[in-house]
């Protein structure tokens, strides 16, 4: 039986294990035939949406890993607009609206309101939080 999960990630990419654990978990879910309604990045978790993240070649790259997983499995990868904006994580549209000179969020990452998370929870059987 397929179970639908909504995944909340609030841990910071490099001072918590949240992203690594969530990525392993999400990949395992799909390998067992389950689904993910959204991976929602909130609080410090939204830092991972920064596409300018550029770690050394032999280090882990949580931004790239989420990108590959979302492309492989097709789940929504959403960062909360208010959490992201205050941390300098901006889509092209939000950047233009706030008069900034650049942006750092690109597809499959999306910027979304908290309503998107509420919807993801409503459409899932279980929710998991990685902090």
């Amino acid at each position: 039986m397929t179970t639908r999960f909504s995944i909340l990630v609030t841990g910071s990419p490099f001072t918590s294990q949240a992203h690594h654990s969530a990525q392993c978990f999400v990949d395992a879910l799909y390998s067992k035939g389950h689904q993910v309604t959204s991976v929602f990045l909130y609080g410090d978790g939204s830092y991972v949406a920064n596409q300018l993240m550029h770690p050394a070649n032999d280090e882990s790259h949580p931004h790239q890993h989420w990108r590959e997983l979302a492309q492989k499995h097709g789940f929504k990868l959403q960062a909360c607009v208010s959490a992201a904006a205050k941390r300098g994580i901006l889509s092209r549209e939000d950047s233009e609206l706030s008069g900034k000179s650049s942006f750092n969020v690109t597809s499959p990452y999306e910027i979304a309101g908290l309503g998107a998370w509420v919807e993801a929870v409503a459409n899932s059987d279980k929710s998991l939080h990685f902090s």
Binding site: Y42, G113, L114, G115, W117, V118, E119, V121, A122
Partner: peptide, 8 residues
Amino acid sequence: MALAHATF
């Protein structure tokens, strides 16, 4: 987040 859930 709690307020968003309550709103919906």
